[in-house]
Nucleic acid binder design. Structure first.
Lengths: 159, 159
DNA sequence: GATTTTAGTCAACCTCGCTTGACATATTGG
DNA sequence: CCAATATGTCAAGCGAGGTTGACTAAAATC
């Protein structure tokens, strides 16, 4: 029994030590938490949730229809509409008319929304700068190269 | 107006290109999804959720009290107890008596739970091997070194 | 030995992030 | 011009992942 326990412990330890993926997950989680913490720390900011921010990259400059947003997010249009509702109430997005189709609306950023977006990106850039300082430019470069290579080979087919 | 739009677009593009952190988040998310997909693909496995697996690293070999688990997870003991309930029903964990304290129970893995744990770690190791193949050993080493350095300088104080 | 604290559970409820279903309105296609 | 289709909203509901409050039983404290 004691032997089996020792073997168990040893295998667990080995797995922990070996897994670069676990390190990746942990680092991503911690940094993400830190970024969210810093952004939401700023007073006068609407209380954004992750589901809200995940919408942002999909909003085109000229405005994007709710159904298109839903498709890009992989959710129903009702769900997308709900997110837009929230962000509209916060003054981040607005629904403009679509000149080509009276049924549709074009969801786009307000001036305030754009400003907030850039603020958020600035926070991220600052955090990244701190990381580079801590681990050195060489390691940061290695990190970036590995991630770029990894992402290039990932999306198609998954495996 | 067209000028402002161009500036907006340019700033967004710059931010996207520059952010190694965003690459990190994306890679972690995709790999995590892939790992979860592979593990839950295996038939005959209990349907674990992330909240369940997040409990595992906190369970000691000799068993761990629910209140300790709650503390380590940063949730209430009721929430931790709920997770243990689920995993007990799946046959992954069990509540053993605590010889030192008749109020307490010691939550520990069942034999089946341990086996499943190692299966999961094996899946992770396989996925990591595939990544290394795709990007090359040198880049994988660079990735690992950067992550180790990063995590060493992160937990205390955060910033 | 009485009182207070600690370990754990039961029950009700909450928010978040979605879904399905029903519907009004506008556009497109035969 | 009428039927079929597409855009979006309203309403209800659900599962995940928690929370708070009330309670029991066993230790610890005095």
């Amino acid at each position: 029994m004691a032997e089996r326990d020792a073997a168990y412990r040893a295998r667990l330890e080995a797995a922990k030590q070996a897994s670069t993926l676990q390190l990746l997950f942990k680092a991503a989680r911690l940094l993400d938490e830190e970024a969210v913490r810093r952004v939401s720390e700023k007073p006068g900011r609407p209380r954004l949730r992750r589901s809200h921010t995940s919408l942002f990259p999909h909003i085109d400059l000229e405005g994007t229809r709710v159904s298109v947003l839903a498709e890009r997010l992989g959710v129903t249009k009702q769900a997308a509409s709900q997110l837009v509702d929230d962000l509209e109430a916060m003054g981040v997005l607005e629904r403009a008319v679509d000149p080509d189709d009276a049924r549709a609306r074009r969801v786009r950023f307000t001036a305030r929304g754009r400003a907030g977006l850039f603020d958020g990106l600035a926070v991220l850039a600052a955090l990244e700068g701190e990381c580079a300082e801590k681990i050195g430019a060489a390691r940061m470069k290695g990190l970036r190269e590995a991630l770029v290579a990894l992402l290039e080979k990932m999306p198609p087919g998954g495996r």
